[in-house]
Design a protein around this nucleic acid. Structure first.
Lengths: 346, 346
DNA sequence: CTGAAAGCGCTTACAG
DNA sequence: CTGAAAGCGCTTACAG
């Protein structure tokens, strides 16, 4: 029904091959012929059939975007929309489309990736997460299929191209920031340790303590799952310690606010009694009370650069493995307070 | 290179047609043959080529998802990730994939939609917005291409299937809610009036005033663009009116918080002096101070139902045009206060 | 229940 | 600079 390359060829008195070459803007066709063929294409309302072209050319001009299962962090604001925006910008500039994974569970996602790869649905894949022991990542690596990750791979770091923040360093800086405000008792509320980002941030926290001569205590570390299931109690226990923290680093702005609310229940003031700093710099964090000091992690760039790297890989299968860190920045607002170190010690 | 249907056929001693029918699980093939062919497929690691299958079958098994340009509301949390989640659930259940638009400007988006339709990239399209005078919507309708919208179309309402909230009604209810708390001076901060959702909410506000015997005043209506560019001043003017409002309805939780911040600058307490209610029930709104009363609009359902409707349309081109409203609910928190109507009037 | 053949709408060596 | 031909990997009437 639709007008095909054959119709155009007939109408323009050339062969289908020629029409095909005009579409591709091949230099081997004379300007005159091109002009004539293009005129006919417009006249007939011709559009190349995507599937047919891809089948013949053995390409798809689309990249697959995979996020971790929907129950996890990835679906929270604002990471997801922003990273997608970055991907869109880069993909659009190179005339690539985006095919989106729809799977729910880890297993479904894995199966979907396999079918994307084997079924030749996409030219390359972006993994929007990095999880410990991830089968999908391993598969992609073993298949030698073009892919990049947003997040440092937990393994094979030298064989996989990825974009990330320097999570260890920035968390280190966050702790130092609090230290410089006079804090010595600094608690940490981590993310899901199945994800490398959470591990790196925890490492940064621990190393900073060490470097600053503060000792690490299990009591000062709350895992994200206990915040989720039993946050109120965990925060109460934290504040009932003999030496309750004067500052808290939270893995995400959302959990920071959750904690602030529990603190309120205990009549603990932020930042009066306890300073708190979050990660990810949510849109709301500027407006909320107290405006939250938070680490901006350049989410759009994360998506943008991951896509650029993938596109390089697709276009040149010999392209070197590359890693980038995208900038992070502590956005100071009003949830952290300078204290004079007059308490117990010293 | 990859193993094809031919390889499987040869190995299983059947024709390619038979293999194809086994893939489709056609009832016309004996169980015995199916078993044998499937065994060979596993053994050889066969996966059907997506493009080839689609080209031959004249289908794509994928739906296109289009959002409004990235500068607008759609990219704000939490609408975007949640609506996508809804779409994914439904698409995945029906084994459809998702092709995502990457365009930046309105024109780019339009071109992309045309190429999706004409290039046979997708079987149907979901428009994640409804804009006044939208060329893309008109095009889809005129082409008679299967599509649905999240949001009431500004035109051709009887010819287009869509899912929406009953925005007029819920805004009406919101005003009544405030009225029942004793408020008589209720201001409204609207969204971008290029979008139908904003128009409907404004209408609901105005009709509620009318029904409740309150008069509508231009002074009580702030357009979203002035909030964006000159919000502080607009809020100041609002509060310096002879009869400043005692309650404010904000088109979105984000703008509600922005307003609250400006109010603070004027030492106006929320909800002490002014009550405020938002829309969209952001994830943070529960945690923030004051916890914001907000209208939950069931975003996931919006995506889910729009996809279901589209799938019906795709599978049956004669399917009737349908509309659904997805439930809305006022989530009461702490930003609205009952007042005793003792001020000036009466 | 199964197969031979045509066809989906392109691209790309190969030849001139 | 252009064309004829083969092929990409499937599906689907048609025939038996």
């Amino acid at each position: 029904m639709a007008v095909t390359i054959i119709d155009v060829a007939r109408e323009a008195n050339v062969s289908p091959s020629t029409v095909s070459r005009v579409i591709a803007d091949s230099p081997r066709i004379s300007e005159q012929t091109k002009r004539r063929v293009r005129e006919v294409m417009n006249q007939l309302g011709y559009y190349p059939n995507f599937q047919a072209r891809n089948l013949a050319a053995k390409t798809t001009q689309t990249i697959g975007v995979i996020m971790s299962d929907s129950t996890s962090l990835a679906f929270q604001n604002p990471f997801f929309p922003e990273v997608i925006r970055g991907i869109c910008v880069s993909a659009h500039a190179s005339k690539y489309g985006i095919y989106f994974s729809t799977g729910g569970t880890e297993e479904e996602i894995f199966q979907e990736v396999v079918s994307m790869v084997q079924g030749k649905k996409v030219d390359g894949i972006i993994l929007l997460y990095s999880r410990v022991g991830d089968r999908t990542m391993k598969y992609l690596k073993d298949e030698n299929f073009p892919f990049t990750m947003v997040g440092r791979p937990y393994q094979y770091e030298d064989e996989i191209s990825y974009i990330d923040n320097d999570n260890e360093r920035i968390t280190h800086e966050v702790v130092e920031y609090l230290y410089n405000l006079g804090h010595r008792k600094i608690a940490f509320i981590g993310g899901n340790l199945d994800f490398v980002v959470s591990i790196d941030r925890l490492n940064g926290y621990q190393k900073a303590l060490e470097k600053l001569g503060l000792s690490y205590s299990e009591d000062y570390f709350i895992r994200n799952d206990v915040i989720k299931t039993n946050g109120m109690k965990a925060v109460h226990q934290l504040m009932e310690l003999n030496e309750p923290p004067t500052a808290i680093v939270a893995h995400d702005d959302l959990v920071a606010y959750e904690v602030i609310r529990y603190l309120e229940g205990l009549s603990v003031q932020v930042p009066g009694d306890v300073s708190i700093i979050g990660f990810n710099n949510h849109a709301l964090s500027a407006y909320v009370k107290p405006p939250l000091t938070s680490v901006d992690i350049s989410i759009v760039e994360l998506g943008l650069e991951a896509t650029n790297l993938l596109l390089e890989k697709i276009q040149d299968s010999e392209a070197a493995v590359e890693h980038y860190f995208v900038p992070t920045k502590i956005i100071e607002r009003e949830s952290c307070k300078r204290i004079t170190t007059k308490k117990k010690r010293e």
